[in-house]
Design a protein around this nucleic acid. Structure first.
Lengths: 169, 169
DNA sequence: ATGTATGCAAACCATTTGCAATGAC
DNA sequence: GTCATTGCAAATGGTTTGCATACAT
């Protein structure tokens, strides 16, 4: 928690510098949004953040959330994901490095896994003329739960097929 | 092109088996959609496919496209991406392996880069109880074009700041 | 005082859904 | 003949936009 407070101050400072440089106003909403984002770890969508802030006595409109996310993405304090459903997910960029996303294409569940610097220096060099701000491995597949459900469903179909074949004889 | 024809027949066969097993009907629309998808390489969204098929004398409704994509995803003949905008992009799964996506977070442009099996066997083992169907590295950042535009914009702001500072003196 | 940022409500648009007509089995 | 599939049009829902009000500068 100590470390987290320090991080929250650090990012606030960075955000302030960014806003100053770009001549954007330093509104209480903007700082509150950043601070709430860095108060928890893990993915969230706009609705989550909207509810979280409303529950914490700092209600902010959805429009402002969307606007502010643009700024936070631009200054790289926040990272955006789109895991499969048509919802944007976000994640703080600092204190959250190096993890892969394991996404179930059936139930949409997203698990995380640490990675050990997947991109080597030589691989990074291959990407000419491109300023990398973030990279992540997305692993799509089927989680154990859905895998099981699918297997059951297949067995059900096969049983039924067999039954009907016998009937037709 | 020879190889491509062979591939198109192969996937048609796989799709047929899948439809039979699951007791789904083998409609001309379904096979036409699969074939059109495998007729070109690279990403596309539903609108692209809709236009492509309409231009090729096989118009299909959007609803059918969405329905069929579900089947093709389920039998792993097609892969789905969400690069950043709220549009689903798709890509054929075969004849298209092993590439990373380099995504500009400003203009949304997606480049591809070959990868050399980023996930090692030991890393794959870490993912317990998960059936991997596909994985891909997504590298987010800023492409050279947007990078340049951004630099210009920053310089413009700084020039303006300086001018105003002098005026205030 | 000026004009950017906020918040509400309306608009937007990719995707989903409901339903009548079609056609695979 | 039956019922899954298609295609149209309407509904949905996350996101964006327009505009009046509030407030950072």
């Amino acid at each position: 928690m100590e470390a987290n407070l320090k991080l929250r101050e650090q990012v606030k400072k960075e955000f302030t510098e960014y806003l100053t440089l770009h001549k954007h106003r330093k509104t209480p909403e903007r700082f509150a949004i950043l601070d709430h984002i860095y108060a928890f770890k893990g993915h969230f969508d706009i609705e989550d953040l909207f509810n979280f802030m409303a529950d914490n006595d700092f209600p902010v409109s959805r429009a402002t959330l969307y606007n502010t996310m643009e700024l936070l993405l631009d200054c790289r304090l926040v990272v955006k994901h789109q895991f499969g459903a048509n919802i944007s997910n976000y994640e703080r960029a600092y204190g959250n490095e190096n993890h892969n996303h394991i996404i179930c294409t059936i139930c949409g569940d997203v698990r995380e896994m640490k990675n050990d610097d997947l991109l080597t220096a030589s691989q990074l060099k291959k990407i000419r003329k491109f300023t990398i701000s973030y990279y992540s491995m997305y692993i799509y597949g089927i989680c154990s739960k859905c895998s099981h459900a699918k297997r059951m469903e297949l067995m059900r179909i096969e049983r039924q097929n067999k039954k009907e074949n016998q009937k037709n004889k």
